[in-house]
Amino acid sequence: MGKFSGLSRMGFKTGIVYRAHFFVSLIKIPLTLVVFFYLWRSIFMFSGEEIIQGYTFAEMFIYYVLSMLVGTLIYCDVDAWMNEGIKDGDVVGDFLRPVTYMKQLFCQYFGLRELTFLIEVIPIMVVSLFFLNVPLPSLLFGMLFILAVFLAILLNYFFTFCVGLTAFWLKEIQGIRRVKTAVMAFLEGALIPLTFFPLIFQSVFKYLPFQYLRFVPINIFLEKYALSEVVVLLSIQTVWILIFFFIAKTVFKLAFRKFAGAGI
């Protein structure tokens, strides 16, 4: 266990050095919420509907508050770290530690999550509870929400690690990361709840990994699912974690061989 706590402590401490980054989000998050607040208020007023695509105005706003919360918690730019390390060659420092590369980065990412939780997520939670009147789910759904977010943290890591592995071949993956960010913002449900898509799309999304990062945890919190549905969704989420874990493991072997100049 010592190995892992040591590495996650490094992630935590590096995060403290770059704490300015966190203060920026103190402006960014309220600003985004203001935009969505006005956008949806105007829509609800113009359309005169009480419920739009399954959400009341209050729920819609809470959706975005939760989206900020979950998004902050699962934020992962391990692919950018990998890209840097591979480009300047410092990745060899990681290869000289007696821990697999995937575990090392995971521990650092997890340490950074702990810091994020303390200095970013707790303030969001406090403000949401006391000033925005966010209603709490039942204990059961509350627990399921926490579980879903925890799984989302894992899922996002293994997915991002897979994206980062491409850097071993391409050296520079800014472009890929941009595409990833754009697609994810959409398919996670960060821009708009996925219920706005045609039903066929929604049934496809169910079997893609992305909605399990944001949309599903949020809707568990809002108790939009029956318990049996939640069980199915969490199972699919778990399957995706395993899939990306195995892809990451297998492709890393190839990536390492490529890095170490095998087969020449």
Binding site: K3, L7, R9, M10, K13, V17, G89, V92
Partner: peptide, 24 residues
């Protein structure tokens, strides 16, 4: 390695030493 960064760039070296303690 003379040319490569093996210490945590943004942190004091003592932190890297403690990391070694845990990792090994």
């Amino acid at each position: 390695l003379g040319q490569k960064a093996q210490l945590w760039w943004d942190l004091p070296a003592i932190d890297t030493f403690y990391l070694s303690k845990d990792v090994y």
